[in-house]
Amino acid sequence: MAIKSVQAKQVKQLNFWEKLYLPEIARGLTLTFKQVFTPKFTREYPEERFIPAGSYRGRPVLVEEENGERCVACGLCSRVCPAIAIEVQAGETTREKERYPSKFEINMLRCIYCGYCEEVCPEEAIVMSKDYELVFTNVEDAIFGKDRLLMPVSQLQDRLEFLRQYRG
C-alpha cells in the first residue's frame, strides 16, 4: 500500500456558542441524562454469579478419575511455571501407572494463572478450572495440597473439550 501523505490537523477554536458555555452545559447534561434510560451495566455479584466459558483460566486443579489422579509426577509443570509455584514429589506404586505424585503442592499466593502448567502437561492431568473464588486467612492455607487440588473429571468437561478443540 502506498504511503499516503498526512496533513497535520489543527485543533478547532471554540466558536461563539461554545464560548458562551451554557449551551455546552445543556448538551452535556442531556448526554448524562440519557444514561438514566440505558440498561444497568453492573452485576449484583454475590447474588448474580459470573459463569465463565470453557476458555476461562481459573484455579489450576488436578484431574481425578475413578482410580485416582492422572498425574504421573513428571515435574514438567513445576519446571515451566514462571512463578515457581508448583512442587512435585514422585512416588511409586504397583498399579498400572507406576508413578504418582506423593506430594503435589501449588502455592496459590505465587500462582499467576498463566496456564503454562496445563499447556505442557503430557497427561492432561493439570487443567485450569472455572473456580475463581479463593479466600484464605493465613499463609499456610494458601498452599494447596493434593486434598484441595483434586477435582473429578466430570466437573472439568468444558475445559477439556476446549483444549482438545482449540489448542489443536
Binding site: 451495566f41 465463565p52 466459558a53 470453557g54 476458555s55 476461562y56 483460566r57 499467576i112 494463572y113 498463566c114 496456564g115 503454562y116 499447556e119 485450569m128 476446549f162 482449540y166 489448542r167 489443536g168
Partner: peptide
C-alpha cells in the same frame, strides 16, 4: 469492560492475558 469480556473469551483472562506463543498464539478463536 466490554473489551475485557472479549479478551476473557479469547484467552481466559481479562488482564494478564499471556495469549501469544512463540510461533503463533495459544489457542484459536472460539
Amino acid at each position: 469492560e466490554r473489551l475485557y469480556d472479549i479478551f476473557e473469551k479469547i484467552c481466559g483472562a481479562r488482564f494478564t492475558t499471556s495469549y501469544t506463543r512463540i510461533g503463533g498464539v495459544a489457542n484459536d478463536f472460539t
